[in-house]
Structures are given as structure tokens and as C-alpha cells.
């Protein structure tokens, strides 16, 4: 099909019936992969997901993608991928509990070339006709993605440090303090 140009398939909502077994036990723990421990500083990322009226959302699916502790992505497009930590997958999935809380264990990502340390976050749920994508940062820093966010809203993408290795990142889908989501 050389020269073909196909149109990407239309998205649709995850709906309310995403099988619970698809949120595998341990899928929210990125610090261990195939029984081996990832390099770097282990951290916890947790937060609440709320809709416009402040209702916490249960069974919402959160996925993350990030570089390893050295700032390298486990992917052939990263020129440094041969040096990536073999014991770090970089991807994880969690579902929110009845109080709307999700939780990941991971390692503090290093700074990829040209970027500040960050974690890509996506949210899928009933009523979301398209995946919502955002990015978690650890501080306001020089970063092309953070720079794209209007000045008054940048702080909403910075996780709050709550302890030596614990960060809180709440996700508000709509309304007051709405999390900035990216158009992509």
C-alpha cells in the first residue's frame, strides 16, 4: 500500500463496562518489571479524579508513560534506547477507587533530551469520547510542553510533593482548577 493515506479510526468512549480484569494486579507498579527492580529513586504518584460537580469518579482508567531514571525511553525512536534500563517498562495502568483515587509506584524520571522530567498521563472513561492526555511535571521548569500551557494554568500540571517520595497529582476533568489537557 505504498503511498496510501488512511484516515485514523474514530475514537469512542471506553464506556462503563471496561473489564476489571484489564486492570491487572501490579500494572500500577513500574518499579518492578519481570521480577527485577528498576534503577532510580522509587516514588509514589497518587491523586483524585473529579468531574465538574466535584464528584469523584470510580473505575476511571489512568495510564502513564515515562522515561527511565536516566531520561531514556524504552523505544527504538529514542537515539539512546540501547542504554535504557532493561528493568523499566515505562508504562503502567491504574483504575480509580470508590473515592476517585488512583496510585502508581514508579521511579523519578530523568530529563529526556530537551525536556524537563515529566510523566505522560492519559485518562479513559465513560463519557469521554476521546482519550484525555496531559503531562505531570515535578516543578515549573523550562520545557517546551509546559511552555505551551497558559501562564495561569501551568501550576496545575505540577505534582505536589507530599513527603520524601510521594507526589499528589489531582485530575479535574472540568470546572474549577480544570487540569490542562493537550490537543493531540
Amino acid at each position: 500500500m505504498k503511498g496510501a493515506s488512511l484516515v485514523p479510526t474514530g475514537e469512542a468512549t471506553l464506556g462503563p463496562f471496561f473489564p476489571p480484569r484489564y486492570v491487572d494486579e501490579g500494572a500500577n507498579d513500574l518499579t518492578v518489571f519481570e521480577g527485577r527492580k528498576a534503577k532510580g529513586e522509587a516514588i509514589e504518584i497518587h491523586g483524585r479524579v473529579l468531574q465538574e460537580d466535584g464528584t469523584p469518579l470510580e473505575n476511571l482508567v489512568v495510564e502513564i508513560w515515562q522515561a527511565d531514571a536516566g531520561g531514556i525511553f524504552r523505544h527504538s525512536a529514542d537515539p539512546r534506547h540501547a542504554q535504557a534500563d532493561p528493568d523499566f517498562l515505562g508504562w503502567g495502568r491504574a483504575a480509580t477507587d470508590a473515592s476517585g483515587n488512583y496510585r502508581f509506584k514508579t521511579v523519578l524520571p530523568g530529563a529526556p533530551e530537551g525536556r524537563a522530567p515529566h510523566i505522560n498521563v492519559m485518562v479513559m472513561f465513560s463519557g469521554l469520547m476521546r482519550i484525555l492526555k496531559t503531562t505531570l511535571f515535578f516543578e515549573i521548569s523550562s520545557d517546551p510542553v509546559l511552555s505551551a500551557v497558559p501562564p495561569g494554568r501551568k501550576g496545575l500540571l505540577v505534582a505536589k510533593k507530599q513527603g520524601p517520595n510521594s507526589y499528589r497529582f489531582d485530575i479535574r476533568l472540568r470546572g474549577e482548577d480544570e487540569t490542562p489537557f493537550f490537543d493531540d
Binding site: Q51, E52, D53, T55, L57, F125, G127, L128, M129, L132, P144, V145, A148, V149, P150, R153, L173, R174, G175, E178, T179, P180, F181, F182, D183, D184
Partner: peptide, 11 residues
Amino acid sequence: LRNPQQSLVKR
């Protein structure tokens, strides 16, 4: 109730 009110950020 669940979709952003603010413009999505282009990057």
C-alpha cells in the same frame, strides 16, 4: 460533566 471546558492546549 467530564469533558474540558477550557481550550485544549496545542503542543
